[in-house]
Design a protein around this nucleic acid. Structure first.
Length: 847
RNA sequence: GCCCAAGUGGUGGAACUGGUAGACGCGCUGGACUCAAAAUCCAGUACCGAAAGGUGUGUCGGUUCGAUUCCGACCUUGGGCACCA
C-alpha cells in the first residue's frame, strides 16, 4: 500500500462531509443537546497556532459528543469590529469593511482546512449589519430597563488608541491594546450598570462547578465585595461628611479624617485655598505620569477643618486631604486609624499624629502592647475604647454599627471594587450607539423603526479625532421627539459588547429579534466553552453580566451563559538570537547536535527560552505551513499530545515529525493488515493471544472515553498509542479479534484525526462514514482480569511481588508474601510484627 | 505587599479516594533490513553499583505499616490584584 497522502485525503473528506451536510445542526432533535463553543476569533487575516490548538480541542469534543449521540451545536463566527481594521485602513488606504471581510474569507478557508466539524450555516460577523442592528435593539432594551446610564466621570483615556477604556481594560496603568499610559479625562459617556448585578455575579460563581477554580477566584477578587459601615461625621463648619470603613471597631483609635484629592469637598475648599489647590494638582500629576511608581510616599494637606467624633462631641479630628485616598471606592473619604492600618500608620508617623492601639491580641496586656513600624491587623480584644473595652473585634464592629445606625448617622453597607462598565468608544469601526442628542429634548433613543443606525459607507480616516464625529452628513439628523435638528451619538460600543452575547445569537443567527427565545432556551447554556486564560476577567465577566441582564428582561432563560469553561494554555516555541542580538526566525535556523546555526551562513545562533509565539520575537510557526507539509491531522494530534491542555505547549519539529509517523503507522495498520475477518464478523475466539488483544482493545475504549470526557486529551492520546503498540506486538491471533482492535484504534482516533480515520475506515471496507458511526462501547467483562499482581513491601520498601487470583483471601496473600526470597532476606530471621494486606494492591510486612 | 497555582528522568509529561513512581510521546544507545540512505521493525534507557543492594517526585520537618498524594515551615517559578480603608 502507498503511504498515506494527507493532502489528497483531507481535501476529499472535507468535501464529503460538506456534501452530506453532516455538521449542519438540525433545529429539533430528540437527542440530548450539547453546545460546544470556542471563543470566536478576531479576523486578523490568518490563523495562528493558538487558534489551531483552541479549535482542535473544541472539535474533538464536538465530534466525540456527536458520536455519542448528542445533538451538537458547534458554530463559528467573527469578532470583527475593532482597531486593527482601522489601522489597516489608515495605513493601506482600504476600507475597514473590505479589509475585514477579505480576512474573514481567508481565515474561513484556513479553518476549513483544519477539518473542523462546524455548522457554517450559522456563521456571522459582528460587523454584519444584521448583527449590530440586533445589538442596537439590545442596547435600547437595556436603556429602557435602566441598565444603561450616561454620566460625566473621570475616565481612562488611551492617548494612542484615542479612545476611553473600561477599568478592566487598564492593566498596570496602561491600555490593554496599545500599552500606552492612560490619562484621566472628564467626559460624558455611556455606562452599563454592571454593579447592579455585582452581588449576583459573585453568588453565581458558586454555581459554576465546571469552571476552573482559578478563574472563579480571579472574578471574585475583581468584584471585590467588602462589608462595612458607612457613617457621617459632623464637621466644625456644621456640614456632614460620609465615610466608609470595614473596621468600625477601631473608631476610638481614629486620629484623622482624610479626603481624596478628587473629593467634592476638597475641590470646593481648593477654590479658596491656593495651597490646597496646588497640593491637589500635584497628586493628580503623580497619579497619571508614572503609574509604576506606586510606592509613592503618603502625602497630606491639613485643611484646618475638624471632624467631630461620633461618640464624643468634644473630640475633634483634623480633616486632611491625602493622596492615597481613592475617590472611586466607598465615599472617597475615610477615618484613619494608624494602629491598625499600615497606610494610616505611615501617614500618621509622617505628620506626627497620635497612634493608639485599640485592638490587642488575645492574652497580651494592652498597657504593654505597642505598635512600632507595623500596624496590627489581626484579631483581638478591644482596649482604650470606652464602652467597647474587652469585646472581641467582631462584637465591637457590630456594636459600633448598631449604635451609629440607632443614632441615624450610619448604615451597614456592602462595597464593591467593581465599577460600572464604560462602553462608549470614540472609534468609527464599531457598533454605533443608537442615540440622538437634541438641544431641546436632550438625549433621545433612536426609534426602533429607524434602526439600524448603519455605519457610513465610506469612513474618512484623514480627519483628526473620530471620523464619525467629523462626518457631518452622517452625524446630522432630526430629533425623533420634536423633529428639530439634532445630532447622532458618534461613539460606538466597546467591542467587548459584541462578544458578550454572540453565543446566544448562534442559537438562531437569523432571528428577527436579538435572541430567539425558543432556540436559546433549548441551546443555552453553552455546555463547553474553550478559550484563553487572558479572558478570565474581561470577556467572561462581561458575557456573564449581559446574560444576567437579558435574563432579567426575560429574553433568555439562563442566568449563566457558560456551564463548562476550559482555559487552554498558550503555544510556545524556542527563541533564537544571532551574534548581534537580533531575533532569528525558526525557518532560518538549522539544528545540529543541540546547537543552532543560521542556515544561510552557518553562523552560530543562541537558543533562548521557549516563549509564547509572537511576531516581535520571530518565533512563530504558521499552521498553514505545517498543514502543507504534514496535513491537518498531524497538527491536531500534536496539539492534543503530551502536554495537558490547560498548560503552555511547546511546538517542536521533532514532535511534529513524531505525530506524522504515527499518522502513517495507523494508516499501515489499517491498510496493510492481512487476513482480517470481514467487517461485522462477531468475535468468538477464546485463545489467550486473542483474549489479550481484546482486553487491550476494550481497556483502550474505556480509557479514551473517560479521558475525553474529562478533557484530558494528552492521556487519551497516550491510551491510543498503547492500543497501537498492543496491536503491533500481538501474536498471531483470531482474525476477528484483530479487526476489532484495528477498528477500535481508528474510531478512537477519529475525534482527534478525523480525516485519517475516514480514510482508514474506508480501507477497512466500510461504506458508512466515521462521522456517522456511533462511539464504541466497551465490554466490561473484558476489562476485568482474573489475576492481579500485588507488590510486597517490608517496612514500606518494595521487596518483590506476587501474582494472585483476583479478590483472593488476605491470608493466602500473606503467606505467599512471607515465602518470597526477598522478604525472607529483608526480615533476616526476625518475626513480622504485623502484616497489612490491601486486597488486589499491596502487602506490607512490618518487621 | 496580599491572594492563587505549580515544582517528578536528558525532555513533554503519567500515577484513581495515601498503596509497585516514571504510563505514553520526544530524544538517545544498540541491533535487524539495505550496496547505501530514508522509511520501518526489535531491544534498551531515573541515578549510584560488577552484583547484592542502595538512593530518588524543589528543601527541611511531621502524621502513617506505607506519602508525588495529607499537615507545617521554607526556597524557586508562573499568574492575578495592587494605596479598595
Amino acid at each position: 500500500m502507498a503511504r498515506y497522502n494527507a493532502k489528497d485525503s483531507e481535501k476529499r473528506w472535507q468535501a464529503e462531509w460538506d456534501v452530506r451536510g453532516l455538521f449542519r445542526t438540525p433545529p429539533h432533535s430528540e437527542a440530548p443537546k450539547c453546545y460546544v463553543l470556542e471563543m470566536f476569533p478576531y479576523p486578523s487575516g490568518r490563523i495562528h497556532m493558538g487558534h489551531a490548538r483552541n479549535y482542535t480541542m473544541g472539535d474533538v469534543i464536538a465530534r466525540f459528543r456527536r458520536a455519542q449521540g448528542y445533538n451538537v451545536l458547534h458554530p463559528m463566527g467573527w469578532d470583527a469590529f475593532g482597531l486593527p481594521a482601522e489601522n489597516a485602513a489608515r495605513d493601506k488606504g482600504v476600507s475597514p469593511r473590505d479589509w475585514t471581510y477579505e480576512n474573514i474569507a481567508h481565515m474561513r478557508e484556513q479553518l476549513k482546512m483544519m477539518g473542523l466539524s462546524i455548522d457554517w450555516s450559522r456563521e456571522f460577523a459582528t460587523c454584519d449589519v444584521g448583527y449590530y442592528h440586533q445589538q442596537q435593539k439590545l442596547f435600547l432594551e437595556f436603556y429602557k430597563a435602566g441598565f444603561v446610564h450616561r454620566q460625566e466621570a473621570d475616565v481612562n483615556w488611551d492617548p494612542v488608541d484615542m479612545t476611553v477604556l473600561a477599568n478592566e481594560q487598564v492593566i498596570d496603568g496602561r491600555g490593554w491594546r496599545s500599552g500606552a499610559v492612560v490619562e484621566r479625562r472628564k467626559l460624558s459617556q455611556w455606562f452599563f450598570r454592571i454593579t447592579q448585578f455585582a452581588d449576583e455575579l459573585l453568588a453565581g460563581l458558586d454555581t459554576l462547578d465546571r469552571w476552573p477554580e482559578k478563574v472563579r477566584l480571579m472574578q471574585k477578587n475583581w468584584i471585590g465585595r467588602s462589608e462595612g459601615l458607612r457613617f457621617q461625621f459632623t464637621l466644625s463648619d456644621g456640614e456632614k461628611l460620609d465615610v466608609f470603613t470595614t473596621r468600625p471597631d477601631t473608631l476610638f483609635g481614629a486620629s484623622f479624617v482624610a479626603l481624596s484629592p478628587e473629593h467634592p469637598l476638597a475641590q470646593e475648599m481648593a477654590k479658596k485655598d491656593e495651597n490646597l489647590a496646588a497640593f491637589i494638582a500635584e497628586c493628580r500629576h503623580v497619579g497619571t505620569a508614572e503609574a509604576d511608581i506606586e510606592k509613592a510616599e503618603k502625602k497630606g494637606y491639613d485643611t484646618g477643618l475638624k471632624a467631630i467624633h461620633p461618640f464624643d462631641e468634644n473630640w475633634a479630628l483634623p480633616v486632611m486631604v491625602a493622596n492615597f485616598v481613592l475617590m472611586g471606592y466607598g465615599t472617597g473619604a475615610i477615618f484613619g486609624c494608624p494602629a491598625h492600618d499600615q497606610r494610616d500608620l505611615d501617614f500618621a508617623r509622617k505628620y506626627s499624629l497620635p497612634v493608639t492601639a485599640v485592638v490587642v491580641p488575645e492574652g497580651i496586656d494592652p498597657k504593654t502592647f505597642d505598635v512600632g513600624a507595623e500596624a496590627y491587623t489581626g484579631p483581638g480584644r478591644l482596649a482604650n475604647s470606652r464602652f467597647l473595652d474587652g469585646m472581641s473585634a467582631d462584637d465591637a464592629k457590630a456594636e459600633v454599627a448598631r449604635r451609629l445606625e440607632a443614632a441615624g448617622v450610619g448604615e451597614r453597607t456592602v462595597n464593591y471594587r467593581l465599577r460600572d462598565w464604560l462602553v462608549s468608544r470614540q472609534r468609527p469601526w464599531g457598533c454605533p450607539i443608537p442615540m440622538i442628542h437634541c438641544a431641546k429634548c436632550g438625549v433621545v433613543p433612536v426609534p426602533e423603526d429607524q434602526l439600524p443606525v448603519k455605519l457610513p459607507e465610506k469612513i474618512n480616516f484623514a480627519v483628526k479625532g473620530n471620523p464619525l464625529d467629523a462626518d457631518v452628513g452622517w452625524k446630522t439628523t432630526t430629533c425623533p421627539t420634536c423633529g428639530g435638528a439634532a445630532t447622532r451619538d458618534t461613539d460606538t460600543l466597546d467591542t467587548f459588547v459584541d462578544s458578550s452575547w454572540y453565543f446566544a445569537r448562534f442559537a438562531a443567527p437569523h432571528a428577527a429579534e436579538p435572541v430567539d427565545k425558543a432556540a436559546t432556551d433549548y441551546w443555552l447554556p453553552v455546555d463547553q466553552y474553550i478559550g484563553g486564560i487572558e479572558h478570565a476577567i474581561l470577556h467572561l465577566l462581561y458575557a456573564r453580566y449581559i446574560t444576567r441582564a437579558m435574563h432579567k428582561l426575560g429574553m433568555v432563560e439562563v442566568a449563566e451563559p457558560f456551564a463548562g469553561l476550559f482555559t487552554q494554555g498558550m503555544v510556545c516555541h524556542e527563541t533564537y538570537k544571532d551574534a548581534k542580538g537580533d531575533w532569528v526566525s525558526p525557518d532560518e535556523v538549522t539544528k545540529e547536535g543541540g546547537k543552532a546555526f543560521r542556515t544561510a551562513d552557518h553562523a552560530e545562533i543562541t537558543i533562548g527560552p521557549s516563549e509564547k509565539m509572537s511576531k516581535s520575537k520571530k518565533n512563530v510557526i504558521a499552521p498553514e505551513a505545517i498543514i502543507a507539509d504534514y496535513g491537518a491531522d498531524t497538527i491536531r494530534w500534536f496539539m492534543l499530545s503530551d502536554t495537558p491542555p490547560e498548560r503552555d505547549i511547546e511546538w517542536t519539529d521533532a514532535g511534529a515529525e513524531g505525530c506524522w509517523r504515527f499518522v502513517q503507522r495507523v494508516w499501515r495498520l489499517a491498510s496493510e493488515s492481512e487476513g482480517l475477518a470481514a467487517p461485522g464478523t462477531p468475535v468468538t475466539a477464546t485463545d489467550e493471544a486473542s483474549l489479550n488483544l481484546r482486553r487491550a482493545t476494550h481497556r483502550a475504549i474505556a480509557a479514551v472515553t473517560e479521558n475525553l470526557e474529562a478533557l484530558r486529551f494528552n492521556n487519551a492520546v497516550a491510551q491510543v498509542y498503547t492500543l497501537a503498540n498492543a496491536i503491533g506486538v500481538a501474536e498471531k491471533c483470531d482474525a476477528a479479534a484483530r479487526r476489532e482492535a484495528i477498528e477500535a484504534l481508528v474510531l478512537l482516533c477519529a475525534p482527534m484525526m478525523p480525516h485519517l480515520a475516514e480514510e482508514c475506515w474506508r480501507a477497512l471496507g466500510h461504506d458508512r462514514l466515521v462521522a456517522e458511526t456511533p462511539w464504541l462501547k466497551y465490554d466490561a467483562a473484558l476489562i476485568q482480569t482474573d489475576s492481579v499482581t500485588l507488590a510486597v513491601q517490608v517496612n514500606g520498601k518494595r521487596r518483590g511481588e506476587i501474582t494472585m487470583p483476583k479478590d483472593s483471601d488476605g491470608k493466602a496473600a500473606e503467606s505467599a508474601a512471607l515465602a518470597l526470597d526477598g522478604v525472607i532476606r529483608a526480615l533476616d530471621g526476625k518475626a513480622p510484627k504485623k502484616v497489612i494486606v490491601v486486597p488486589n494492591r499491596i502487602v506490607n510486612v512490618v518487621a
